[in-house]
Amino acid sequence: MTLRRIEIGLVSTDSTLADYYAAVFELEVLPAVEAGSGTVHRLQGPGALIKIMVPTEPPTPATPVTPFIATTGLRYLTLAVTDLDATLARAKAHNGTVQLGPLEISPGLRIALLQDPDGNTTELVHEPA
């Protein structure tokens, strides 16, 4: 196997989105990296790095597509969490919106869909231990 880790990159108008993901998913905040085109805020989690790029020239905010399955392309992230209810509570407290759920789709397997403050969709999955 050649895959070592997954890095996810999101583009935002400011660092608020990095603050959201750090707080909601309890991610380690790594030092930001200044690039010629802007600042990359880096958040470390088990097996993944989430990068929030804040360009020097503010980008045009995207229009969220609802439902997220209404168009093709990279439309959502799936994150496995240890406590779905606590994660949803943190998301709501940081201006996230619950789009669906939580739902139990099989015994002990629960999911929910969140929309972050920029309109990106995240699927949360909690599997039985």
Score class of each variant (00 low, 15 high):
residue 94 H to W: 01
residue 85 D to M: 05
residue 75 R to Q: 09
residue 91 A to V: 01
residue 28 E to P: 00
residue 71 T to I: 02
residue 117 P to S: 09
residue 106 S to Y: 12
residue 13 T to C: 10
residue 98 V to C: 07
residue 71 T to H: 13
residue 7 E to D: 15
residue 57 E to K: 10
residue 44 Q to T: 03
residue 68 F to V: 09
residue 76 Y to I: 00
residue 128 P to C: 00
residue 129 A to W: 03
residue 53 M to W: 13
residue 119 G to S: 02
residue 100 L to K: 06
residue 46 P to Q: 15
residue 70 A to L: 08
residue 76 Y to G: 00
residue 33 V to H: 14
residue 63 T to A: 14
residue 72 T to N: 11
residue 17 L to P: 07
residue 66 T to F: 12
residue 109 L to H: 14
residue 18 A to W: 07
residue 79 L to C: 01
residue 72 T to Q: 12
residue 89 A to W: 01
residue 127 E to P: 00
residue 30 L to R: 15
residue 12 S to T: 09
residue 54 V to Y: 11
residue 105 I to V: 15
residue 86 A to L: 09
residue 106 S to V: 03
residue 9 G to C: 13
residue 53 M to V: 07
residue 60 T to W: 02
residue 46 P to E: 15
residue 82 T to V: 02
residue 113 L to F: 14
residue 59 P to A: 03
residue 29 V to C: 08
residue 86 A to W: 05
residue 93 A to P: 03
residue 93 A to R: 07
residue 10 L to E: 07
residue 122 T to S: 06
residue 48 A to R: 11
residue 98 V to Y: 07
residue 18 A to N: 05
residue 25 F to A: 07
residue 58 P to I: 01
residue 30 L to D: 14
residue 47 G to A: 08
residue 21 Y to I: 01
residue 49 L to I: 14
residue 90 R to K: 13
residue 32 A to Q: 13
residue 4 R to M: 09
residue 35 A to Q: 15
residue 19 D to A: 14
residue 76 Y to W: 02
residue 54 V to E: 11
residue 22 A to C: 02
residue 115 Q to G: 05
residue 72 T to V: 11
residue 116 D to A: 05
residue 126 H to W: 11
residue 55 P to K: 09
residue 20 Y to S: 03
residue 72 T to W: 08
residue 113 L to C: 01
residue 63 T to M: 12
residue 91 A to Q: 03
residue 95 N to S: 14
residue 50 I to N: 09
residue 66 T to C: 04
residue 99 Q to C: 05
residue 32 A to Y: 06
residue 79 L to I: 12
residue 57 E to A: 12
residue 127 E to V: 10
residue 33 V to Q: 15
residue 96 G to T: 06
residue 91 A to L: 04
residue 32 A to T: 13
residue 103 L to D: 06
residue 75 R to T: 12
residue 31 P to M: 10
residue 106 S to L: 08
residue 69 I to M: 10
residue 93 A to N: 08
residue 39 T to G: 08
residue 113 L to Y: 14
residue 115 Q to V: 01
residue 111 I to M: 10
residue 9 G to D: 09
residue 120 N to V: 00
residue 78 T to W: 00
residue 67 P to Q: 06
residue 76 Y to L: 04
residue 24 V to Y: 04
residue 40 V to R: 11
residue 37 S to Q: 12
residue 44 Q to E: 15
residue 106 S to T: 13
residue 105 I to K: 08
residue 115 Q to I: 00
residue 122 T to P: 00
residue 43 L to R: 04
residue 46 P to V: 13
residue 14 D to S: 09
residue 45 G to R: 08
residue 60 T to N: 08
residue 101 G to R: 06
residue 119 G to T: 01
residue 73 G to R: 09
residue 68 F to T: 06
residue 129 A to K: 10
residue 64 P to F: 14
residue 44 Q to H: 13
residue 23 A to D: 04
residue 63 T to Y: 07
residue 88 L to K: 08
residue 99 Q to K: 13
residue 4 R to W: 06
residue 31 P to N: 10
residue 93 A to I: 02
residue 124 L to G: 01
residue 46 P to R: 15
